[in-house]
Design a protein around this nucleic acid. Sequence first.
DNA 1: CAACTATTCAATAGATTTATTGAATAGTTT
DNA 2: AAACTATTCAATAAATCTATTGAATAGTTG
Lengths: 220, 220
Amino acid sequence: MNKREFKDKVYGELATITKALANPHRLEIIDLLAQSDYSVEQISTQTGLSMANTSQHLQVLKTAQLVDVTRNGNYIHYKLADSNVFKAWKALRELGIERIATIDKIVKDFRQSKFKFESVTIDELVHKIASGKVTILDVRPEVEYRTGHIADSISIPFDELATRLKELPKRNEIIAYCRGPFCVFADEAVALLVKAGYKAKRLEEGFPDWHLMGLPVELN
Amino acid sequence: MNKREFKDKVYGELATITKALANPHRLEIIDLLAQSDYSVEQISTQTGLSMANTSQHLQVLKTAQLVDVTRNGNYIHYKLADSNVFKAWKALRELGIERIATIDKIVKDFRQSKFKFESVTIDELVHKIASGKVTILDVRPEVEYRTGHIADSISIPFDELATRLKELPKRNEIIAYCRGPFCVFADEAVALLVKAGYKAKRLEEGFPDWHLMGLPVELN
DNA sequence: CAACTATTCAATAGATTTATTGAATAGTTT
DNA sequence: AAACTATTCAATAAATCTATTGAATAGTTG
C-alpha cells in the first residue's frame, strides 16, 4: 500500500461515515436518539416518516455503526452508539448555526414570531445556580427525563404543564430546557409560564449538551 | 410556518452543509486547508485530482460557505472559512477513528508496516516540555510552518531532513509533528532520525489540533 | 404451534452526485 | 490592447441516494 492508497482508504472511510449523517431525516433521528433510545415505531411517529422509510434510515445509521440495536419485547430499540456520535452532530450543528446565516435566521424567525423571550446559555445557568434560587424545569417527554436529566431538575412534560402549574414555586426564576437548540417545547413552556405570571426563560442548549460538559446530572 | 416545516428547514440546511463534507476528496482538501491556504493548482497537485475536478469540489465547499476565496496575483487561494470548519472535521475524524475499527486498522497497519515507532499525544508533549529538554520538529512544507507552528519548534521539511540533520541537537529527544493523524511525514522523519542515532517520536495529532487547544503557537 | 405484530427487505423510478472532457472566462502581464 | 494563464463552466454518462409500495421475516405471545 502506497501513500496515495492509504489516504484514499482513510478519507474514503471517513466520507462513508459522513454520508451516513448527511441527510435531514437521519440528523433529526440522531438528535432524537441523543435524548433516549426509542423504537422504530416511536421514531417514525416523532419524525413523521413512514415505518419502512424510518427503518431504512436506521439501517444506514446501523451500517455506519452510529447506532446500536437491542430488542425489548416486541419492539426493537435504537440508541446512539457512543458519545462521539453526539459530539459529531453537535459540531455540525454549531458549524451550521455559526456559519450559515440562513439557519440562524430560520431559528430566530420561528422563535420570535411566536415567543419573544430571552434565553440563557449553559454557562449563564451554571452561574445562576451558584448564586441564587432557580427552578430548573425539564419539559421533555417523561421517558427522556427518566433516561437522564439535569441534577435537581423537575419533570413536567409540556403537554401536562398547563394542568400542573401549581407544582412550580412562584418566587423562583424558572429555567425551562428540552432537547437542544432546535427543540421548541421549552419556548412553548416559557410562553405559558410567563402568561401565568412566572418569571421564566429557556435554556438555549439541551440536556445532552449539559451532560457532555460534565455538569451534574442524574442518570438511570 | 408550523413546527414540522421549521424542523424540515433546519435539518435540511444542516444536511446540506454535511453533504458538502461527505466526500473523500473534499475531506482531504479540508484537512489540507487546515494547515494553510493554497491555490487550486497546489490543491490539485497535493490531492492528485485534475484541475477541473479540484475546482468543482472547491465550488461545492464555497457554496456551503466552508471556505473563503482570495485572489493572489494570477492564483486564486482557498482557505477554511473559520475554526468551526476544522472543529467539525476533527469531530468526524475522531468519530471515525474511535468508532470504525476499519479506520484504526488501516492507519495502524500502514504505519506499522513501515515505521515501528511509538507516538506521543499532545498532552504527553505538554508534560515533556514542562519537565525537560525536548526539540520540537515541524516537518511540514515550509509554507505551512510560516502560516503557523508550535511555539519554539524548528522547521525542517521532510524532503530536506536528510541533508539538514546536523541542525538538530543530538542530546535532546526529538518530537516530530506534521498535519495530523493521517499525515505520514512525521513517521518518515522519525524513521530517518532513529536510523541516524537520534531519540525521536512522532506527535499523534497535528498543528491545527494543538492550536485549537489554545496551546502556545507562533502565527503569521 | 399458530397467530400476531413490529420490523425489514426487495424492487423501482426519480433525483442527486461524481469524474471527464473540452470550451469559456476573468484577470494579469507584457 | 493583445496574449497568456489559472480557474471555472457546461454537458454528459455512470453511479449512488431516496421514498414508496407491497411482500417477507423473525421473534413474541397466547
